[in-house]
Structures are given as structure tokens and as C-alpha cells.
């Protein structure tokens, strides 16, 4: 059973094999809705909006909010400050909430006894077990230069896959320290990790590191990465090949 909802401004898809339990899948979407109500910076009524408006102090916030803040702070320290939910004078925890919510949704399915499923929220994926052909889930990496294409096919089971990036259609990013000299900056960084929470937060941070990001992923035990630069050249971490189908 495969179901897609547009929630949190993005398509969220849940596919579960061997189950037609609509109420279970609906409870997963209800969970995402609950997360959105609390953490969306687009909703005036959300708890995060109350914090940003100064109506609520972070230390007085709900346990869920404080847990997210703690995870964000831990990630900030682990990534040399490249991950930071504090921007432009306000908190935006989306970078940590999304991966965490997908992982938690996968937890709901696991606790209900589901062994073969994936949860995909806006291109960040947690996949468990196998697909309907009894093989690992086939996860494509989208072409950052043409969103209708894929440039890599991975076999994923029991891991999280997250991609950070931007579509720049061939424009060059310029090094402000050397104007006039085009550099091939990165446009897409895919990270495979032990779960989507870990993969997503490190993909976000490593992307902000620029070219150095793939080295950061290379150093992380249990993580592999696939980086695409603005010239269409990809760089793979040492063990990435074990996930590659084509």
C-alpha cells in the first residue's frame, strides 16, 4: 500500500508491503500533521512561531520542542557550527525536525510490526526491509540539473538517504576572494547513513561546508556520500559503491 500526502509543504509518501492497514498509515500522516502544527515557521499558531514572536521562552517550551533544540545544539557542535537553526534573528528548526520526524514515523511502522516499508518526505528517505520484488528498495538520486531525471540508483535497506542541494542550472558560483574566476561549487550532496535522522542532519551540514563536505562525510563512520558539483562531476566516498546498482 502506497499513500502520498502533501504535508509540511512537500509530498510525503509511505509505502508499506504486506499491509492494507489504512488506519496505521493514516496515523503516520497524523503524526506528521502534529509535527507540522508544532514546528512550522509558516504557521502563526505553531509553538515555534510563539517562540520566535517572543511569546514563549525556549526553556518554557514543550518537551518535544526542547528535545529538538537539544538535537540541533548537539548537531551544531558536531559540525563545527555549519548546522545552525538560528538564522536571521529567529529559529528555524526545519533542518532537524524533518529527518527526526521521518525516523519517528518509521518507528511507528516498526512498532506496528511492519518490516518492509519506506517513508519519503520531500526526497529524504528511510527504507526498511525489501521492496515488492524481495530486493532492497531502489532509491534514485535526482539529477540536480534536470529534476525529471535520475543519475544514480542505490539499493537501500535499513538505512536513511538524504540529499541536500540546490538546482542551479549551470550557473557558476563565484569565489568572492577571487572575483572573475569561476569555481565549480557543489549543487547536490546525498548521504546514506544508519537512519534518516543522522543522514539528514549531516547532509545539511556537509552541504554548507562546500567541497569540504564530502571529506566530512568520508570521515564519519557508517556514512557514505555522493557529491555533485556545478560542472556535473560527482565525487564518491570510499564505501559508497556498495550501495550503487547503476
Amino acid at each position: 500500500m502506497k499513500t502520498t500526502c502533501i504535508l509540511m509543504g512537500m509530498p510525503i509518501t509511505v509505502e508499506v508491503l504486506g499491509s492494507d492497514d489504512e488506519t496505521l498509515v493514516e496515523s503516520v500522516f497524523a503524526f506528521f500533521r502534529q509535527v507540522d502544527e508544532r514546528f512550522s515557521t509558516y504557521k502563526e499558531t505553531s509553538e515555534i512561531s510563539a517562540i520566535n514572536a517572543g511569546r514563549l521562552r525556549p526553556e518554557d517550551a514543550s518537551p518535544e520542542m526542547r528535545a529538538i533544540f537539544a538535537m540541533a545544539e548537539q548537531t551544531r557542535r558536531e559540525t563545527d557550527g555549519y548546522f545552525n537553526i538560528w538564522r536571521d534573528g529567529r529559529y528555524d528548526p526545519a533542518g532537524i525536525v524533518k529527518g527526526w520526524a521521518i525516523a519517528a514515523a518509521a518507528g511507528i511502522l516498526r512498532r506496528a510490526g511492519c518490516a518492509h516499508f519506506y517513508v519519503d518526505a520531500g526526497g529524504d528517505i528511510e527504507a526498511a526491509g525489501h521492496n515488492d520484488e524481495g530486493e532492497p528498495w531502489r532509491v534514485g538520486i535526482r539529477n540536480p540539473f534536470d529534476i525529471r531525471q535520475i543519475v544514480k540508483v542505490l539499493a537501500i535497506s535499513g538505512c536513511g538517504v538524504a540529499t541536500s542541494g540546490t538546482y542551479i542550472r549551470g550557473q557558476h558560483v563565484y569565489d568572492p576572494h577571487a572575483p572573475g574566476r569561476p569555481i565549480k561549487e557543489i549543487v547536490s550532496l546525498t548521504v546514506v547513513g544508519p537512519n534518516i535522522y543522522e543522514a539528514d542532519r549531516f547532509a545539511t551540514a556537509a552541504f554548507a561546508m562546500g567541497r569540504r563536505g564530502i571529506l566530512f562525510i568520508e570521515r564519519l563512520a557508517g556514512f557514505e556520500g555522493y557529491m555533485i558539483d556545478a560542472g556535473g562531476q560527482a565525487t564518491l566516498t570510499t564505501g559508497f559503491g556498495r550501495y550503487v546498482l547503476s
Partner: peptide, 23 residues
């Protein structure tokens, strides 16, 4: 590290990973 030019794949997939924030 290993490097390669990206190539469009025609194999079918179950699900696609792509740039999060932009999507």
C-alpha cells in the same frame, strides 16, 4: 576520492532522493 561524470539512468526506482529544501 572516486570521481565520475554524472550519467542519466533509465533504471526504474521505487523512490527518489533529491534536494530537500528546494523541493
Amino acid at each position: 576520492l572516486t570521481s565520475e561524470a554524472i550519467q542519466v539512468q533509465s533504471a526504474r526506482v521505487n523512490v527518489i532522493s533529491g534536494a530537500t529544501l528546494t523541493s
